[in-house]
């Protein structure tokens, strides 16, 4: 069936099975590949995108559920060539190794800082515990989120 999606401010109409995951549609139909497949069951956070500003696992979200809501992916953060403060903070802190988890990390961080601009370390850890980084970049990711929080 035909579904209308609002992604990063633009409206897209896609022909898809409504049971299909939001992530598959974003990646394969819309070419927005920043959100990654990691585990397929919402246990790693690599597929985190924002739905009306709230972080969701796009792998375990059916595309039909996302219709009519504002969807934000990592590609939607940069504006007019200027990085979002969280993106910049990740670069400044060197908070990446292989980088595969980083899209999900940044989206979860953006959602956290929106509701809690100056989180404590305990609050950051609680908000980020669903995001897996296999390279062990956690200390630098924490530093990046702290810096982005302070910068606001």
């Amino acid at each position: 069936m035909s579904i209308e999606l609002r992604v990063n401010g633009a409206t897209h109409r896609v022909e898809t099975d409504p049971q299909c995951s939001l992530l598959a549609v974003l990646r394969d139909d819309l070419g927005l590949t920043a959100a990654k497949y990691g585990c397929g069951e919402g246990a790693c956070g690599a597929r985190t995108v924002l739905l009306d500003g709230k972080p969701i696992r796009s792998c375990s979200t059916r595309v039909s559920v996302a219709a009519g809501h504002a969807i934000t992916t990592l590609e939607g953060l940069e504006s007019a060539g200027k990085l979002h403060p969280v993106q910049q903070a990740f670069i400044d802190a060197g908070a990446m190794q292989c980088g595969y988890c980083i899209s999900g990390m940044i989206m979860s961080s953006v959602a956290l800082l929106k509701t809690n601009p100056h989180p404590s370390d305990a609050e950051i850890i609680r908000a980020m515990d669903g995001n897996v980084c296999r390279c062990g970049t956690h200390p630098k990711i924490l530093a990046a989120i702290r810096a982005a929080g302070g910068a606001r």
Partner: peptide, 22 residues
């Protein structure tokens, strides 16, 4: 230290890992 080459592509989602290549 030297900044990671390709860091900007990673934080913007532009880096193409194999599953992103079409």
């Amino acid at each position: 230290p030297a900044p990671k080459v390709g860091g900007r592509e990673i934080v913007t989602g532009k880096h193409e890992y194999t599953p992103d290549v079409k």
